[in-house]
Simulated assay, not measured.
Amino acid sequence: MKINENTLLEGNNVVLVPYDAKHVPRYHEWMKSPELQQLTASEPLTLEQEYDMQRSWREDDDKCTFIILAKQQWADGSVEEEQCMVGDVNIFLTDPTDPTLAELEIMIAEPGHRGKGIGREVTHMMMSYGVTKLGVQKFEAKIGLNNEVSVAMFKKLHFQEASVCEVFKEVTLAMTVDESVRTRLLEATADMKERDYRRTCSDRREHV
């Protein structure tokens, strides 16, 4: 999505950056994992296909993608950005007739960064961005029935079970953004900073 191609979102423990071509090799290595393929219902792609996918995620009007970076590593300007990658987060506008409906998907690919509250923080940040920048009014999350950790996290964030598909073995959780949800999101992300991505990258290199 063009709207976030130069947007950096900085939270307390993570930094969200646009999915760039330089991130593709690391992402491609992640997606060779059978575990991640199963959790994300993804098929393995060739590296060339992964670059094509990255371009589509950057350019398509119905996809908004950020790469998740570990802020502590990223703060060290001598560490390459690709080495700070821990996962990705996406918003998909799945219904052409309703641009206010969005599917939310998050992946913490690096095992060492799971179970530390990163998923919760990133979800709050992405939902806040979706509400304030994209006009999202309802979120859905489709999660494999065996992914108990993700199901539990979204339910803690007040998502409600909308449906269960036994064929695809997934549950759909949903949340409508009313005024109380909007207020809660803005409070949860009060410290989030939005920056110019390219300028921040340039400043980061200069400080090495």
Rank of each mutant, 00 (worst) to 15 (best):
A174C: 07
G11Q: 04
L104T: 09
H28R: 03
W30R: 05
I68S: 06
K138T: 13
M127D: 07
S42V: 02
R26I: 04
M53F: 13
N6G: 11
E81N: 12
T200H: 15
V208R: 15
G115S: 05
T200G: 07
K116Y: 02
I118C: 06
M53C: 01
N12A: 12
Q73A: 06
E29R: 14
F154M: 11
H124V: 04
K22R: 14
L69N: 02
M153E: 08
F159T: 08
A174S: 15
F159V: 04
T183C: 05
S180E: 10
A141G: 02
M126D: 05
V86H: 03
L134P: 00
T40G: 04
S56C: 07
D62M: 00
L93R: 12
F92K: 08
S128Q: 14
G115E: 03
E187F: 10
N6K: 06
L93C: 04
R198I: 02
L134F: 05
G144T: 02
L157Q: 10
M53W: 15
Q83H: 13
A162E: 15
E80R: 10
E50D: 12
R184G: 11
A188S: 11
R204D: 01
K169T: 05
R204Q: 01
E148H: 12
L39N: 13
I68D: 09
C64Q: 04
V136E: 09
E148M: 09
D191H: 13
C165K: 10
E50V: 03
A41P: 02
E187D: 15
F139R: 02
V171Q: 13
Q37T: 00
E121Y: 06
G117M: 07
R26K: 15
H207V: 06
P34Y: 10
R58S: 13
G135I: 01
T65N: 10
L101N: 14
V86D: 04
M31W: 10
R114T: 11
E82P: 00
Y197R: 03
H28N: 09
E5A: 10
T100Q: 04
L45D: 08
Q54N: 12
I106P: 05
E48C: 01
G11I: 01
D60M: 12
F66V: 04
K2S: 12
G135H: 08
K156C: 01
